[in-house]
Design a protein around this nucleic acid. Structure first.
Lengths: 184, 184
DNA sequence: GGTTGCATGTAAATGGTTACATGATTGT
DNA sequence: ACAATCATGTAACCATTTACATGCAACC
């Protein structure tokens, strides 16, 4: 999913500045399913305006750069719908932790243990955040609630699985306690 | 995670050709947590040899390009362990379907229904594949079994959640049956 | 005095994806 | 016949990530 479409989607949900779009993808409904940085957002927004898919109104602010509020145009909405018409690809998970875990036998058991415990704590934090989000916005759209619930379900299953099966991978790491030293 | 480290990890699991590494990330233990293409693998492998992190032995084959079997060196194993020493970042999920679902109100309810049903079927396929993998390799490492189980748990929770809450998002899509037409 | 939040943007570097190039074998 | 599997590799293209550049306000 390119940054241009991501921005267009954000604007469909409501007028916003580049800064606010970043926050949406960092803390909002989509934060668990996408990420996008400033370096992608600002050029994408400029391009959307050039293409007539969005409009920009400058709001001068004192002591700060002007706030540029972007709004999606009817043409932009059409383009978004066209983007939504293409068959969505499969979900992709990228997990550095899982890569690392595949080589648990090369690492000290204590480190594996800490890593897994930390990750479980992280999952639980994410779940708590989703819960508090839902509590704060009882009038959220059905879509937003669906995505929140899905994120919550995924994090919960991952946390529960790790808690239940941690001992198995730790046992394997303990079996080769000197493996890490072999490479020094 | 860059292709170089991904290849190094693959070689730590056993000597392999570029083609076989691709398969590992397409069908193997890590297939649910990473992906890598030929265009990344072959240059990465060349670089690993240049840096002394891997060795290559040509195996001439008749009627085919030589098969190049790569093997990790002790230095390569050290480099891999160094890579594993850095704190792993959080898991990242990228889901085009979830992006699309956020705009369910712009799309026909029938399409949302089909999309979700198809995705549930896909999750179940992935789960079946993991199950058959585990059945075929009863001597798999603890790490491999852990990753398979984790993938299975995540897919199951996503499939179950979608099945249980599909109706809610469909109802929202049905509420605005003419939304898609508004942009034409 | 340092960090976080607000606020926008550019430029370089990195590096992954896609298309191309080649070609035999096996299965439908 | 056509697609898929096996098998390697290059080059152009495209995009994100990262670092840089600026600067005030609020909080600890």
């Amino acid at each position: 999913m390119d940054a241009r479409t991501l921005c267009l989607g954000a604007l469909e949900l409501g007028d916003a500045s580049g800064y606010e779009i970043k926050k949406l993808y960092e803390e909002g409904d989509l934060s668990h399913f996408y990420a996008v940085g400033f370096g992608s957002i600002y050029p994408a927004l400029t391009r959307l305006v050039e293409e007539g898919l969005a409009e920009c109104s400058d709001q001068p602010q004192d002591k700060r750069p002007d706030k540029k509020i972007y709004r999606i145009t009817p043409k932009g909405r059409g383009e978004l719908i066209r983007s939504l018409a293409v068959q969505p690809g499969p979900d992709k998970i990228r997990s550095e932790l899982c890569f690392l875990l595949l080589f648990a036998n090369l690492l000290p058991a204590a480190r594996i243990d800490k890593l897994i415990e930390d990750r479980i704590a992280w999952y639980r934090e994410q779940m708590a955040e989703i819960d508090s989000c839902e509590a704060e916005t009882p009038d959220a759209s059905a879509s937003a609630r669906f995505l929140g619930g899905l994120g919550h379900a995924i994090y919960k299953s991952a946390a529960d699985f790790m808690a239940a099966h941690k001992s198995e991978i730790i046992a394997a790491a303990e079996a080769q306690p000197g493996a890490a030293r072999a490479a020094e």
